[in-house]
Nucleic acid binder design. Structure first.
Lengths: 233, 233
DNA sequence: CGTATACTTGAGCTTCCTCAACGACGGTGG
DNA sequence: CCACCGTCGTTGAGGAAGCTCAAGTATACG
């Protein structure tokens, strides 16, 4: 059995700076795995025995509170690493990753991380950058939740989704995976009712066009303005 | 001029695993700097030309929004690293660090990080763990702000402060640096008024005892229960 | 002793959540 | 192909948590 095609991870930040030989080595340790829609890649609290790069599809990363409430931490798009708990010295995954569309990921066993690291020290820097930008995003979200009202937070969430998983369609940009009002609510710390009202209002203003598990942004500029601009009506 | 006393960083996680010789090397590149109360160690947006370990005192790390609102990201206590932006590949500090008490820090020039890394690769893992746990904390805070009411968030903030900077006094544990209602509000995403009301109410219940820039927790157990327990009164 | 900064407390109001009911879409099986 | 049913979405009414506005009071520092 040959090694995987290097073009699979073409241009993915952590692997971009590797020599072809090193890349081959890295890929030789990985296994591609399919995750049909609805299946979990790993579960919060489970032993962190692998880390991943998403090749195809979309994942939702959720955190469950002791009281049973869910919060969506982020969505994973192709090209992104996820499940990188070993690298941060954690034995267990701090959240659950679920495929929201049929997905394929490359999986590395956690215990090959030391070998990878000695062979390609540059990987460490790449991971550091990744974790660093996750930290920035998390801090940004804390600031947002501390200072902005719900409508603006929802606008911001949609902007991020469009940037990350936007797919141009007829008249607008569509979020490229099924997403419910409840999902958006769990991203923004509100309720599905409030999200529904906001989307309804935006729909009347021609800002978005949405339906069952489907959101199409028709006017990205105005949405962006809503997210960024001052409380100015 | 000799090198710094290794006992300065005794038991500080990122340096714990270094050989005495390596530790000497690391310390030879650092300079101790004093930051009187009220002065900034670095400012948000400024070039990240140094990284630090706090030796003495306490810092507040704040993020400023475009609209001019402040959010307190964390407090730094002795032994903790801070300003580690180079390590995550950032050119500028994402937040401002201000001394809330007279403080002393060890400062390394950012450009000596590569040299440090080649000499002591183990440092990378230590930093990764640090950044990883910051990420966990940030995510925890997002979850908290999404799901818990203000009183509980304030309780949680106080618990963390007690753990991190609690100093036993006569009858209780005191937060070991000046902290205002406004500061607590900026940690929890609320207003100084609400914090004031909550502390007043807790004071009447004998839970805390507080005054101008001063908070003493008299009953840590009950405070902890307030922070962790279900909405059960 | 005066002034600046921090804290307290009340009253009213806004935002958003909760509760409730209904409507619509889409997949499944007859 | 149609009817059914589960899931998702919409919308209204009421209420509560916490913010805003507004005084007024204490504490430290010069």
């Amino acid at each position: 059995m040959g090694t995987l095609d290097p073009s699979l991870v073409d241009g993915m930040p952590p692997f971009a700076d590797l020599t072809p030989a090193d890349l081959d080595f890295v890929l030789s340790l990985a296994k591609p795995v399919r995750y049909p829609k609805g299946t979990a890649v790993f579960a919060q609290g489970g032993t962190a025995d692998s880390f991943f790069v998403l090749l195809h599809g979309h994942l939702q990363v959720v955190k469950l509170t002791p009281e049973g409430r869910q919060v969506v931490l982020r969505y994973v798009s192709p090209g992104e690493m996820f499940g990188i708990a070993v690298q941060t010295g954690r034995a267990a995954y701090p959240a659950t990753a679920v495929a929201v569309a049929d997905s394929i990921a490359l999986a590395w066993p956690s215990d090959c991380w030391p070998a990878l690291l000695t062979r390609c020290p540059a990987l460490a820097a790449g991971i550091m950058r990744t974790v660093g930008s996750r930290l920035d995003e998390a801090h940004l979200r804390v600031v947002e939740m501390s200072t902005q009202e719900v409508e603006r937070r929802v606008a911001h969430a949609l902007v991020r989704l469009v940037r990350q998983a936007g797919r141009p369609v007829g008249e607008g940009i569509r979020i490229d995976f099924p997403i419910t009002r409840e999902d958006v609510a769990q991203m923004t710390g509100t309720t599905l009712h409030t999200v529904s009202r906001i989307l309804s209002s935006w729909e009347q203003q021609g800002l978005v066009e949405s339906g069952r598990q489907r959101i199409v942004v028709r006017d990205p500029d105005r949405l962006f303005a809503l997210a960024e601009r001052d409380g100015a009506r």
